[in-house]
Design a protein around this nucleic acid. Sequence first.
DNA 1: GTCGAAATTGACTAAATAGTCAGTATTGAA
DNA 2: TTCAATACTGACTATTTAGTCAATTTCGAC
Lengths: 205, 205
Amino acid sequence: MKTKETRTQKRARRTRKKLKKAALDVFTEKSVAAATVEEITEKADVGKGTLYQHFADKDQIVVTLVDEAVDHLIGRFRAYDCKPETLEDMLQHLLNAHYDFSVECREEFLLLFQGKLLLKLESDTMDELEEPYLRYLQEIEHQVAPYLSPRIDTVKIRRLACAVAGFVFGFFSFAMIGMTEKEIEASVNPLRRVFVRSLCAFLGR
Amino acid sequence: MKTKETRTQKRARRTRKKLKKAALDVFTEKSVAAATVEEITEKADVGKGTLYQHFADKDQIVVTLVDEAVDHLIGRFRAYDCKPETLEDMLQHLLNAHYDFSVECREEFLLLFQGKLLLKLESDTMDELEEPYLRYLQEIEHQVAPYLSPRIDTVKIRRLACAVAGFVFGFFSFAMIGMTEKEIEASVNPLRRVFVRSLCAFLGR
DNA sequence: GTCGAAATTGACTAAATAGTCAGTATTGAA
DNA sequence: TTCAATACTGACTATTTAGTCAATTTCGAC
């Protein structure tokens, strides 16, 4: 039974959306750790108390945004006109999806990068943040598994997922320093082909 | 003409060293952006004013530490018993050097990761930070160039450098979530071999 | 229109932080 | 030993920040 949304609920939803968008902007510009609640609420044009109505604290905003960014990325993994026929095609598709995401959803891409770093540091504060990243890796594995032998070692699949993820995030992060935008674009095809071939070789195909 | 170091100079050098080590610890535990001068000086057991005697501000500590971490990593690139004979051997060596660095100098590895992120964000505050990263990429290129045709496109070499860097930093960063320490270790050899072979294929060798 | 519920506001409080600088400690030359 | 230079200290100041909560605004049922 779908209840019609009241104007009160719509208003709250709109406010929440403004907060999330503003937070993503500030996280992109200042980094997650350096971002302040003041800046976010100012950018969102929303009262400070309102932010705390919607989120327990800044960390909760981060978790929410990372969750959504991972959902968006996973959505791109699942978006193909026709299902790829070979492992190579699927890997190509996955790398394409990453690349398009990194270009078209740059703020979310940067947020995922930052989230990775937070997880890596020695603090125990953001256990919740691990779940979306695991989900992300699992989705890569899920997309790839049908193309593999049913008896293949799960560790090997996890290696593959990490390699795909790592290559994408890593290459682009360094390319942004040492190469122009045109050079990056021109590099994507050749390196992607190399990478796909090497992963297939790794999996014995 | 080498002047003998006075005890005053030795004392200052010791203090500076303490500050740098403490800063690296705090950056590792809290992240660069979240680290405070108070925490660093407390950990170093050094007065607050002393820190400002040695460094203009926190950013300057970061730049100094990144500079040194890159020097250390470059030192590992250059440390071989006998010069590798083939491109594959050199690439293997470079990947080994990265891996050893990431295990043995974990704090510096994490710092380099964080520095990359700071460069990526939209702020113009840390232009000085770019130089060590470019130096790092250039060193990879320099180590690899003798094995390549003199006529090879410089963009192609830069691609290679970014791919090596990206693969290393990226793979390990994701592996740390999705895999155990033993699994990571067991993954390094097979993935590295495949990656090296593919890069050589990429370069037409 | 009334009144209670829900959403929002932003002044305020307590705590945290960067940076300063007068005072202190250590060193080194004479 | 004296005195100046250098290195260091940490209380202090001004500023910034997270979080609170009484007041206000908006909404919705009657």
